[in-house]
């Protein structure tokens, strides 16, 4: 579904991404794990059109994404829930979700799409008329993902969906991500904490200093001590997302 090949990104004179290649198949959850500054967000921003790579290709359903504007990429059906949620605080929760239904027309009605998003995160029903800035961190994350989902995307990009959440909230968000994948959406998720990677993820790519240093199943990461050392996992971490 998404194919990134030999991607190179320079920012000023720094070589941020070096020959990065990865792929995400239909209905797959693929996780991109790396420390802060390793290049995770740069990959996501390249996919979303916010950064123009210096070389390589990013193909979505066979179509080249490099050169397209971010809004054109979104209209192809790529939803994005950014790190830090970035919800529109001046808008109500309901309006935040509705916005996505207006910007991309699909075969499904706006009501259906909003209902789907609320089925995934039912807690949001309680706050529909509340302004975005009156929400907790966890609720904002859920709203951010729900808003991306209301775009009716075939592909979702999630940037650190569990970052900064209390352990009590993480399972709710993880259940939501699991339900999204079961609905047939493909998901590319960036994470800094290997313990947040669900066991059922199709693949894990570990990135370090702009290079992919590992590719495999989540369980296999724990068999490679050198990889765990790089991403700060001990192998004894409690797995948070096992849904």
């Amino acid at each position: 579904m998404l194919e990134i090949k030999d991607l190179d990104v320079f920012i000023q004179s720094s070589h941020i991404l070096q020959d990065v290649s990865l792929s995400v198949g239909e209905s797959e959850l693929v996780c991109l794990v790396g420390r802060n500054g390793a290049g995770r967000t740069t990959i996501l921003r390249s996919v979303l059109g916010f950064i123009r790579p210096d070389s390589g290709s990013i193909k979505y359903g066979g179509q080249e994404l490099i050169g397209l504007a971010p809004y054109e990429i979104a209209s192809l059906g790529i939803g994005y829930a950014p790190e830090g949620s970035a919800i529109f605080s001046d808008l109500t929760v309901e309006e935040n979700i509705q916005i996505s239904t207006w910007t991309r027309k699909t075969g499904r009605s706006g009501e259906e799409r909003i209902e789907t998003a609320l089925e995934i995160f039912p807690v949001l029903r309680k706050y529909l008329r509340r302004k975005g800035d009156h929400m907790s961190g966890g609720e904002r994350k859920m709203l951010s993902i729900a808003r991306a989902l209301a775009l009716d995307p075939e592909f979702l990009v999630l940037d650190e969906p569990f970052e900064g959440l209390s352990p009590a909230i993480i399972p709710q968000v993880a259940e939501g991500v699991s339900a999204i994948t079961k609905m047939g959406h493909s998901v590319l998720m960036a994470e800094s904490n290997i313990a947040h990677v669900p066991e059922w993820a199709a693949k894990v790519f570990v990135i370090e200093r702009g290079e992919i240093i590992f590719e495999g199943r989540p369980a296999e990461v724990y068999e490679h001590k050198e990889v765990l050392d790089v991403i700060g996992g001990s192998g004894n971490d409690e797995r948070i997302c096992t849904t």
Binding site: A74, F88, S89, D90, L91, I99, R104
Partner: peptide, 19 residues
Amino acid sequence: LTLRCVRDNSVKAESLGIG
């Protein structure tokens, strides 16, 4: 409402398909 999204955060607005 779309204009208010553009005002609040134009980068995030673009990621929702807003030109």
